[in-house]
Simulated scan of single mutants.
Amino acid sequence: MALSVIAAFTIILIVLAAGEFVSTKTKAFVPSVFVSAVLFLIGFWTFMPKDLIAKGSFAAPLVPISMYLLLVHMGTLMNLKELLGQWKSVVISFGGVIGICLMTMTIGKVLFGWQTVVVATPPLTGGVVASILMAKGAADKGLPTLAVLATCMYVMQGFIGYPISALCLKKEAKRVLGLYKNGGKDAKLAESETASTNVTPRKKLIPPLPEQYQTPYIILMKLGFVGFLASKIGPIIHVNEFVICLILGVIFCEIGFLEEKALNKANAFGFLMTVLMGYIFANLSQATPAMLKQILVPLFGIIILGVIGMYIIALILGKLLGFSKEMAFASTLTALYGFPADYILTHEAIKSVCETEDEKEYVIGDMLPKMLVSGFTTVTIASVIIAGFFIKLL
């Protein structure tokens, strides 16, 4: 099917818009990313060309630029105290990854075999890098079916993670909103711990630019400069450069070089997020019906075992560290999708229960930092480490 660039772009946006429409109608009970993923999957199986996403310009070099700018921007949403204060989220999300490994490498090994769980576990713990590593490792070992399993695990895990996370986040948003509405000691404590955005602006090392110079060009230039620094620092210290983007975003916002909520002020956030979301669904073009039928049982069996492992760990660590069971479980579930789905799911849940901007700001201040830090911990850090170890077990 021959499509022009604008036709492909429009089809992609129709699918994304349909996802948002269903999510809004169901008050985030059915998340937009889940609906869009189902529609793209059906489309790729029927009338959509496999390279639809690339034809619509949702591909390199625009996607990497979007990632750099968005992740630095995410850093401008959190202050340094907030980021350092999320150690509990790091512990819980790491614990969830361990829970996945414990379940798949014990019960999963008995049910599906050693090589199957070795190939499938790293992609289940996180991102595309782990999937690529394990797929290549399986192919190099002459295991083409398992190479397909590694790819499908990355593609399909969100179908389980999205709806469960949506339910958990909606319940958590109601709980935090209740603290806000009730006021008193508990609400004040929560507001203090999460460094709510409703605080007096702090004096920073670099004074803010005059309002007339805070233009899209200048804001994007500064975000790009910080992203460039991250791309150079990451390889030197052997840390993923996108993690460095988040950290530098926090630091440069703290000292005043970057504006708070930078991309929003540049009026560029919505478009860049759209680019990233479109690109993510490109992976679904690889999941053919024949491929899914071949590995259906181990695919969903291992996902279910992993989710059970995450839930058990979330209950234990959440109770020990003072997280609600919903927040703890949602933090571990970020391993199944990561950024930007963690951001979108959190915002959708909050939007569905909050009525005023003050309520939204308060609940976002409590929940979003936990989800973002958890997502980076699982997908960006833990999954790559685990893949590097597991590939030696093949």
Results as ranks from 00 to 15, higher is better:
residue 271 F to K: 05
residue 384 V to T: 14
residue 105 M to K: 14
residue 20 E to D: 10
residue 354 C to R: 03
residue 150 A to F: 12
residue 256 G to Y: 08
residue 248 L to Y: 11
residue 331 S to M: 12
residue 35 V to C: 11
residue 242 F to Q: 00
residue 170 K to N: 08
residue 262 A to Q: 02
residue 252 F to M: 14
residue 143 L to Y: 05
residue 284 L to W: 10
residue 324 S to K: 13
residue 378 T to Q: 09
residue 188 K to R: 06
residue 126 G to R: 08
residue 152 C to W: 01
residue 103 M to K: 10
residue 58 F to S: 06
residue 246 L to W: 06
residue 92 I to S: 03
residue 259 E to C: 12
residue 7 A to K: 02
residue 70 L to A: 04
residue 328 A to M: 07
residue 122 P to G: 02
residue 25 K to Y: 14
residue 250 V to G: 00
residue 295 I to W: 05
residue 188 K to H: 04
residue 63 V to S: 02
residue 246 L to N: 01
residue 130 A to C: 09
residue 331 S to Q: 08
residue 132 I to S: 03
residue 118 V to K: 02
residue 19 G to K: 07
residue 388 G to C: 13
residue 63 V to L: 10
residue 376 F to D: 01
residue 237 I to Y: 09
residue 375 G to D: 01
residue 48 M to E: 03
residue 95 G to A: 07
residue 161 G to Y: 04
residue 138 A to V: 10
residue 300 F to E: 07
residue 358 D to A: 13
residue 91 V to K: 08
residue 242 F to D: 00
residue 23 S to W: 07
residue 227 G to F: 06
residue 31 P to M: 08
residue 357 E to Q: 15
residue 259 E to M: 14
residue 30 V to D: 00
residue 147 A to P: 00
residue 227 G to R: 05
residue 58 F to G: 04
residue 48 M to V: 03
residue 325 K to L: 03
residue 289 P to I: 11
residue 264 N to Y: 14
residue 285 S to V: 04
residue 299 L to H: 05
residue 326 E to D: 15
residue 253 C to S: 14
residue 187 A to M: 03
residue 91 V to W: 01
residue 89 S to W: 03
residue 186 D to R: 12
residue 343 Y to Q: 06
residue 363 V to I: 11
residue 28 A to G: 09
residue 168 C to V: 05
residue 173 A to G: 05
residue 294 Q to F: 00
residue 333 L to Y: 02
residue 299 L to E: 02
residue 62 L to K: 07
residue 225 F to I: 15
residue 72 V to C: 08
residue 35 V to K: 09
residue 150 A to T: 07
residue 202 R to I: 12
residue 252 F to D: 06
residue 87 W to S: 15
residue 137 G to C: 09
residue 359 E to P: 05
residue 198 N to A: 12
residue 256 G to V: 11
residue 350 I to K: 08
residue 360 K to R: 15
residue 128 V to G: 04
residue 345 L to R: 06
residue 157 Q to R: 14
residue 157 Q to L: 09
residue 139 A to L: 14
residue 274 T to Q: 06
residue 220 L to N: 11
residue 296 L to K: 09
residue 105 M to F: 15
residue 112 F to G: 01
residue 97 V to A: 10
residue 84 L to V: 13
residue 339 F to L: 02
residue 135 A to L: 09
residue 184 G to D: 12
residue 253 C to E: 08
residue 285 S to L: 06
residue 170 K to F: 07
residue 218 I to S: 11
residue 15 V to Y: 01
residue 167 L to E: 11
residue 108 G to F: 01
residue 213 Y to E: 14
residue 365 G to V: 03
residue 38 V to W: 09
residue 21 F to C: 10
residue 295 I to G: 02
residue 175 R to G: 00
residue 146 L to P: 04
residue 142 G to F: 12
residue 382 A to T: 07
residue 314 A to D: 04
residue 328 A to C: 10
residue 164 I to Q: 08
residue 332 T to E: 05
residue 127 G to F: 00
residue 228 F to D: 11
residue 41 L to P: 00
residue 279 Y to W: 13
residue 2 A to K: 14
residue 250 V to L: 08
residue 17 A to E: 12
residue 168 C to E: 03
residue 44 F to R: 03
residue 93 S to C: 13
residue 162 Y to C: 05
residue 49 P to T: 11
residue 33 V to M: 14
residue 304 I to M: 14
residue 111 L to V: 12
residue 197 T to N: 07
residue 145 T to R: 11
residue 266 A to G: 06
residue 295 I to D: 04
residue 373 V to L: 10
residue 217 Y to N: 15
